[in-house]
């Protein structure tokens, strides 16, 4: 992946947040590359910084309460250094985002068709009639047919799965180059989740759109992502092609996480692998490996130094001293 032309390149991204209890080091050096047309998964447990990374790309932090460092190169331009006005031009047009809870993200007092048309009006400067045509096309594209009838409906008339389809329609209305999907199926049922995953995959193929897919579910990554980054405590600890990471996890955290997933292949009534302890709070900027306290293979160096990336074949890399040494 490294040798390919990337749409998005995040290098050494740090985010510090001011909270009631002091400074939280939410991200401490995130490196992430998303290639053109690729669905890139970001996995990790709650608080690992995966949503924070997405928010940073959209520059959604409160500037008074947060501090950013590092670079976010989108088509060669650094989003992290942009004026907020320039970012606003990118938002929704070149980069758009869908969230976990569609019911909370839609305006309850506006018909879904108008909400999609609004995107075209704002970003593509279309006329009313054009915007309506675009909205109808989008509804059809996300599988909400007959589009004419759906156009007039309000969010409360739709089920959770259909609301998420509307969110996707709004997000892709301006044919963005990058779609950030932040746990888009977590609130949905299994059968509906399968529908939405298939939709996102087919749209990505069809439109050549890159997707940054944030999830806590390795199964989803295996289903739709071609590459994956595993995050822990505000850092990307392992990156690589999905099959390579899943079949040969290099970082002990990735390996332990995969072992703890209950899978259908697993024999019933067997004990699951689990990771002892829990992540530390992020009130300190650690100068050592954040996983060392829970890691079965930790040794002296892990507790004193922060590990850099060790490269394996095919762009697969992991931040661990235990590799190759």
């Amino acid at each position: 992946m490294i040798d390919m032309e990337n749409l998005l390149e995040i290098n050494g991204l740090t985010v510090e947040l001011m909270t009631e209890r002091g400074i939280v080091y939410a991200l401490s050096g995130v490196d992430l590359n998303v290639a053109h047309g690729q669905i890139h998964g970001v996995v990790g447990e709650s608080g690992c910084g995966k949503s924070m990374t997405a928010k940073s790309i959209m520059r959604l932090h409160n500037p008074k309460r947060s501090r950013m460092g590092g670079t976010i190169l989108f088509e060669g331009e650094d989003i992290a250094a942009m004026e907020i006005k320039e970012v606003e031009r990118l938002r929704g047009k070149d980069i758009s985002m869908i969230f976990q809870d569609p019911a909370m993200s839609l305006n309850p007092l506006m018909s879904v068709g108008n909400q999609i048309a609004e995107m075209a009006r704002v970003h593509l400067k279309s006329s009313k009639a054009e915007a309506r045509q675009i909205a109808l096309g989008m509804l059809e594209k996300v599988g909400l047919s007959p589009a004419i009838n759906r156009y007039r409906q309000y969010p409360f008339e739709l089920s959770g799965g259909m609301q998420q389809r509307v969110m996707i329609a709004i997000a892709i209305a301006c044919s963005p180059k990058l779609l950030i999907a932040d746990e888009p199926t977590t609130a949905l049922d299994a059968t509906i989740q399968a529908q939405i995953l298939e939709l996102i995959q087919s749209l990505s193929d069809e439109m050549g759109m890159s997707v940054l897919f944030i999830t806590h579910n390795f199964g989803i990554v295996a289903e739709i992502c071609s590459a994956v980054s595993v995050m822990y405590q505000g850092r990307v600890v392992e990156t690589g092609y999905t099959r390579s990471v899943l079949d040969n996890p290099a970082h002990p955290y990735t390996a332990a996480l995969i072992a703890s997933i209950p899978t259908m292949a697993l024999e019933s009534q067997k004990r699951l692998g689990s990771i002892p302890g829990r992540p530390d709070t992020l009130y300190e900027n650690l100068s050592y490996c954040p996983f060392c306290a829970r890691c079965p293979q930790a040794f002296g160096q892990c507790r004193n130094e922060r590990p850099g990336y060790q490269y394996l074949e095919d762009g697969h890399r992991a931040a661990c001293f235990g590799i190759g040494g």
Binding site: G219, I220, A222, M264
Partner: peptide
């Protein structure tokens, strides 16, 4: 069967038939 097929799996070797249910509950 549909519910089983909708479970995203990390195993590549389980070749499974994908059943995607139409519509909502």
């Amino acid at each position: 069967q549909a519910l089983m097929s909708a479970v995203p799996s990390i195993d590549s070797d389980i070749a499974k038939e994908r059943i995607i249910l139409e519509g909502d509950i």
